[in-house]
Every structure is written in structure tokens, then in C-alpha cells.
Write a protein that binds this DNA or RNA. Structure first.
Lengths: 401, 401
DNA sequence: ATTTGATCCCGAAACGCTTTAAGCTGCCAT
DNA sequence: ATGGCAGCTTAAAGCGTTTCGGGATCAAAT
């Protein structure tokens, strides 16, 4: 009866490798001075596990088990091994591990190009955060690009099958995201940036767009605005739902009375935002302030204002969202909500690695706030809606002659 | 005497794997219908080389040699193998190959964060190009970020030692780039985006900034401008040298007479560009047009112009470089030179992979042109330099009261 | 004195792939 | 016949790591 076969540890929560810091590395150099320190394998300068095991007079298996925190290794041995590993500068070759474990220690990111420019400036910071989190754990970031949804799914599958990525960070999550459906089906780990439709039992990280929008409303109301409009993005983005709800909540909270005419959704480009702006300004009681779901939509508002000779900040107030460099490029500077994209990336990276290390941990859900950045694009309303109508008529008349 | 030992092929120019396209894959399905198509290894859905060799009744070695283009395999066998590989959907696991070959089939990109925002919008397109080229060859892109030069070197070394990257694309190359010095020392392959100091015998890809700047000068001169200034970036960027030289060449070519006062270099941020602009406008004979080495510098010019009440496009013409979204966000739209960043990435990726495949090929050097994109920021000079001086004095006076 | 049970470590076999050395055909020239 | 030589294929040894079954040791329990 092979009673011994019972494993003390379950398969899934794989033992977290012991970090170097846990054993005083500086001391190690002296302790192990008797070990032939530069016992390196022939060709390149790498120290292999064989070198290490030989130096320690242990077998490779034992060394590996010691380093990977298996429980059937004496604590003293473990310490010995870890010290020697530090002293000799041993670090396992991740793809040599991958061959057996199937884990390549790299997180995948597939960015979709067709999405509107919105996320472009955001990318560098996001990557920074991700890679920072990754490299802290000795992981790596594998990036791919795709043209469309189908492409994305194909590429992700490919990356997983060829073990180039252990799972994915999903940026700019959609309300009904095909990636989620697909990845849940196969069981590839992933973490969302954003909250899709049924996010209750998913791991995600997000910025509270709803809070920002509500804050925007209250900020403008405090300035004296009563007619505050909202230009939203396409409904298929998850963030659109959050921000729209935030706007509504803000309107309610300030007791301004929700007017569906003031809410223009579905704008994807500055041009479409321009069209929305024209619709808003053509209302009988036009808004004196416009909140945009993204900075790039605000650009469309600016364009129309410039065209109509409407002074931004006094005659028409505007607030954006993203805190992009684009926002500071505008004149006057666009008031916006800055998102700490780098932190977002870093958090997502950490969450992801933690998830891989312990796949049956409960889902993790993190939220942070966006920080309001005032700008010259807001001010006390110089004109009432009625005056605004008259001004527009007047300027339009002179312009058309 | 083991005469047989002579290898017909040298070690270095490793045989290029035969592409799938070379053997009609659609036909293959029928030809190999007798083969058990879904002979897959037990756990996951991958087809391994063992499955393939078993199906073909060949040994793994033969299959490998056939696929890797070794010359001592009969052509008929090779075709058989390739067909079967396509039919069964076999693709080698790159990290399993890496363990023996040391090549992980991934190109590394370390982006440095401290660099001024200049390159931010550029990133997404660049990545798109790179990953596109990479995935076409079954390669992968590994991205890391670094805070400073030392960090970059450390990270690159690390990536190479742990075989996470076979070499690097160096974006935004410096005139004297520490990365180049370092990588040449170890013999890690790399390719530059840009032309550093001694680029004669290096592989690079670049956009002809010099041509663009010369074109800008001639464009403005054709509009009637005679005093054309230049605001340049820091000298340590390689591109600064090119663009500056191009500006000078343009001035010469148009016979405008080079005036050192009109050339302000070393501006890294919009703010520094603003300072440069003020210096230029304070000259006895100020310029009526300003060419900026980057779009973001142009933003500084816009800021000063707005502040001084100078109408861009009529009273002061501006041209930028990069064709960034920032440029179109400005009002009026900034005339600029659009760089096809995606193509840049794609070309660099291809060049890199080619280089790895055949390390002793001669260096490859590619240049493309930037495309001029007109905008409202240029026009016939409405004022002469003298009138400009008077206007400025006048407006300055009213503004100061 | 024997069984039991831990605890710690070892040897060996995977993993998927490449590469080397050696083997097996034929064929031509001795 | 014998040797030599192509040409093609196989067998097996790595590569660096994990994992599995079991062996040795020792203390405690029978």
C-alpha cells in the first residue's frame, strides 16, 4: 500500500518561491566562501541548477524543491541552498521552468488598434506600471497588437497555446466583452481594467469614473451652472455606463433635475462630439456647461465653440476626463480628471501575478479615484441660457454674412 | 578517420525555418487524411514534435532537421514533414527550442520613462508596427520600462541573460548612446531607431528629419517669409543633429542667410520652448515664422502667442514635427510632418529578425521621409518683422496696464 | 525487538526540442 | 568481393528544470 503517496500540498496553490531578501545575502558571501563561487557552465556565464547542486553536494531535485518552498525539505537545508544560490547568483531560466510547469512567467497584453485614439497617450504610463510590477517579481510583459475583436481572441489563444503568456490584462474592458467570454471558456486567467456587465465575481481594477462625473457636476453647480450637459461615449464601453450613471447621480444630488435632452451619448470622436455640441446649443434652453466623458470628446466641443466664437471658460464651461496631455494642449487648458495610469498598470500587474500564484484565491477588486485638475475651461456662467441663445443667434448672423 | 563530420553548413547563419506558405496547406489536409489528425498530447491541445514524428513514422530528430532546413534531409521527406506539420497544426514551443538554441524568438524593447513626453503618443503605433512584424514571423515582443540610463542597461543585460529577449530595438537613439556602447561590448544584437554619432557601420532605421526641416524652410520661404527661426531640442538626441542640419541646409538653399540668433536649441519642454519664443520675439528683427523640432515644442510657441495676442497662422507662422494628435488638438491646427511610426516599427522588427537569422549579413540601413501635413498655423506673413515689433510693443503696453 | 510514522533527501524520469554521432542503405570504383 | 563514399535516417545525449516514488534515518509506539 503506497500510503506515502499523499502529497502534503495541493497541486494548485503553487508554493511561492522564496525571495532573495529573506536570507541575508551580504552575509552569504562569507559563509559560502568555501564554495567554488565561479563554478559556471561552460559556454555562457549562467549558473545552472547543476552547478549549484554540485557545489552543495545535493541533487538538483533537492535544490529545486528547497528553492520552491516545498515542505519536505529541512529548514536548515533550505537556508543553506538559498544562501548558496544568492552567493553564486543563481536564477532559474524561466523558459526552462516553463517546459515543465507550463508557466512562462509573463503577462500578456493585447492592445487593439482600432479603438479610438482615446487610449493612446495612456499607453506609455500603463506599460510602465505593468512592467514595473512584473519585473519586481521577475516576470516579463509580452505585448501584442490586434486589429479587431476576432483578431484579439485569436492572438490571445495563440499566445497561451504557445505559452508566451500565462494570462492577460484586459485594458479598456467593454460592457459585454467578447474577450471575457472567450477567456472564461478556456480557463485562461485574466484581470480586467474596468468593470464589465457582470463584474461581481471577476477580478478587476478600475478608476471610479462615476465619482468623477458626479464631482464634475457638483463643481459646476457650485460655480452657478444650472444647465449642465453630458456628452458620453459609446455604450459598449464599460466606462460609459459608470460615467453616465455618475453624471445622473450628480445631477440628482445637486437637485438640478435630470433632462434627457442634456445627455448626448454615443460620441466616439471629436467630430461626433462636435455634432452633439451643436445639438445641445440648438436647444431652447442650452447648457452653459458641458461635461465630456473623455478629453478627446472635449476637443470636439472646443472646435464648435471656436467656430461659433464662444469663449470657453466664460460663455461655455467644459470639463473632460482622462487628464491627458491633450487636455493641457488645449487653450484654455481643459479642466479634467487625472487618472494615475501607471498605478493602474502596477496594481493590475500585481493582482495578476498574485492570481497566478494562487488561482483559487477569492477574486480581487480594487478601485481608485481620479483626481480633479482644474483648468481655464470652467468659470462662473457669464451668460444665462437665454442670453446664450441670443448671443449665438447674433454671432451666427454676423458670421453668415 | 571520421571524414563524415564535416558540416555542410556553417554554425552561424542558422537555417531559416521553412514557412508554412511554401507548401500548399489546403491541399495538405487531404493528402494527410490518413494520418490521425488529432493525435494530441494528453493534457492540453498542443501538437508536439513527438506526435508529429509518430504520425509520420519518423524520429523526432529527422522531423526537427527537416523543419529547420538542414541540407542532409531528402527534399521529398522535407515536403512530407512540412505538409504534415501544417495539417496537424504543429508549431514548436519557442521556449523549448530556446533551451537548446539559446534563442527565445522575442525582440526586446526597453522604454525609458524619464524622457520627455515627446515620444508618448508615438508609442502605440510603434508597438503596433513591431508586434505586427514579430508575429508575422512567430516572434514575440517583450517590453520593459526603465527609469534612467543605468536602469536601462541593467534591465537589458538581465533580459538577455535570462533569455527573455534575443536583442533589442533601441528607440529614440541618442547622439552618444550608452546603450550602444554597452550592447556592442557584450555581443547582443540591436538595431537603432535613429542615427547616432558613428552610425556608418550600424544597422539603423530612421526618418529623414533633415529633409523635413529643409522642406519646412522652403515651404515658409515660398509663402514669403524671410526671417525663419528654429527651436531645437536637446543636443543629446540624435535627431536634434539631423533636424538642425536640415534647417541650416534649408536656409542656405533658399538663400536666406543663416542667423545664429534665429536658432534656439536645447528646448525640452513646451515651457522651455516658450522661453525660446520670447527670446526670438525680443530680437531687433524677430522671425515671422518658427519651425519647431517637435510638436510639443510648438505648444510652447502657441502659449506665448496666445499670451501676447499674436494670431497664429497670420501674424506668426509655426511648423512642428511628428504629426502627433497633439498637433491636431491645437487651434489652429499645427502644420507638421507626419511620421509613419507604425511602419517604422514594422521595418525595425523585420530588420531585427533578419539580423538574428543571419548575424553576419552586412548592416542594414533604411530611411523614409516624413510627410508634410499643412495646417492653419502657417500663412503668408501678414506683418514684416518691423511691424511685428511695433505690434508687440503696442499690445504689450495695453496688456500691462 | 519489532513495527509504525515522520522527516529528509536521493535517483531517475519526465518535459519538448535540438544536435551529435553513428548506422544503414545503395552505388561506384577497385 | 571489397572498400569507400554519398545520402538518408536513427538513436541517444543533452538543455535546465520539476516531479515522483522510494530509501534511509531516527524517534516513538507497540
Amino acid at each position: 500500500m503506497p500510503r506515502r503517496k499523499i502529497r502534503l500540498f495541493d497541486k494548485k496553490p503553487l508554493p511561492k518561491p522564496v525571495s532573495e531578501a529573506q536570507c541575508g545575502a551580504e552575509e552569504a558571501n562569507q559563509v559560502w566562501s568555501d564554495v567554488k563561487l565561479d563554478r559556471r557552465s561552460r559556454d555562457n556565464g549562467r549558473v545552472t541548477i547543476s552547478d549549484l547542486s554540485q557545489a552543495l553536494s545535493l541533487t538538483k531535485g533537492t535544490v529545486s524543491r528547497a528553492l520552491n518552498g516545498y515542505p519536505d525539505i529541512a529548514e536548515t537545508t533550505r537556508v543553506r541552498v538559498i544562501r548558496a544560490a544568492n552567493a553564486m547568483g543563481y536564477r532559474p531560466l524561466s523558459h526552462a521552468q516553463a517546459i515543465k510547469t507550463g508557466r512562462s512567467c509573463s503577462l500578456g497584453l493585447v492592445i487593439q488598434l482600432s479603438e479610438h485614439d482615446a487610449h493612446r497617450p495612456f499607453l506609455a504610463e500603463f506599460l510602465a506600471g505593468l512592467t514595473q510590477a512584473a519585473s519586481k517579481e521577475g516576470w516579463t510583459l509580452t505585448v501584442a497588437t490586434a486589429e479587431n475583436d476576432a483578431d484579439t481572441l485569436r492572438i490571445m489563444r495563440d499566445l497561451v497555446v504557445h505559452q508566451k503568456a500565462d494570462g492577460f490584462i484586459l485594458p479598456r474592458v467593454l460592457w459585454d466583452d467578447p474577450r471575457i467570454a472567450s477567456l472564461s471558456g478556456e480557463d485562461t486567467p485574466f484581470i480586467c481594467y474596468g468593470r464589465p456587465r457582470n463584474s461581481k465575481d471577476m477580478s478587476y481594477f478600475d478608476v471610479e469614473g462615476e465619482a468623477a462625473m458626479a464631482e464634475a457636476v457638483s463643481y459646476l453647480a457650485d460655480l452657478g451652472h444650472r444647465r449642465i450637459a453630458y456628452i458620453g461615449s459609446a455604450e459598449y464601453y464599460a466606462f460609459s455606463h459608470m460615467r453616465r450613471d455618475g453624471y445622473k447621480a450628480g445631477i440628482d444630488a445637486m437637485g438640478l433635475g435630470f433632462d434627457p435632452d442634456l445627455m448626448q451619448e454615443g460620441a466616439l470622436s471629436p467630430e461626433q462630439a462636435s455634432a452633439a455640441t451643436r445639438r445641445l446649443l440648438a436647444l431652447d434652453t442650452p447648457p452653459t456647461a458641458i461635461i465630456c466623458a473623455t478629453d478627446s470628446l472635449a476637443r470636439g466641443v472646443y472646435d464648435v465653440a471656436n467656430e461659433l466664437g464662444l469663449a470657453i471658460g466664460t460663455e461655455l464651461s467644459v470639463i473632460g476626463y482622462d487628464g491627458s496631455p491633450e487636455a493641457s494642449a488645449m487653450w484654455p487648458r481643459l479642466a479634467s480628471f487625472a487618472v494615475d495610469t501607471r498605478k493602474a498598470g502596477a496594481t493590475l500587474g500585481e493582482m495578476f501575478i498574485a492570481r497566478i500564484r494562487n488561482p483559487n484565491a477569492p477574486v480581487a477588486q480594487h478601485l481608485i479615484r481620479a483626481e480633479f485638475r482644474p483648468g481655464g475651461s470652467t468659470g462662473h456662467p457669464k451668460l444665462t441660457p437665454e442670453q446664450l441663445v441670443r448671443t449665438l443667434a447674433q454671432r451666427g448672423a454676423t458670421q453668415n454674412t
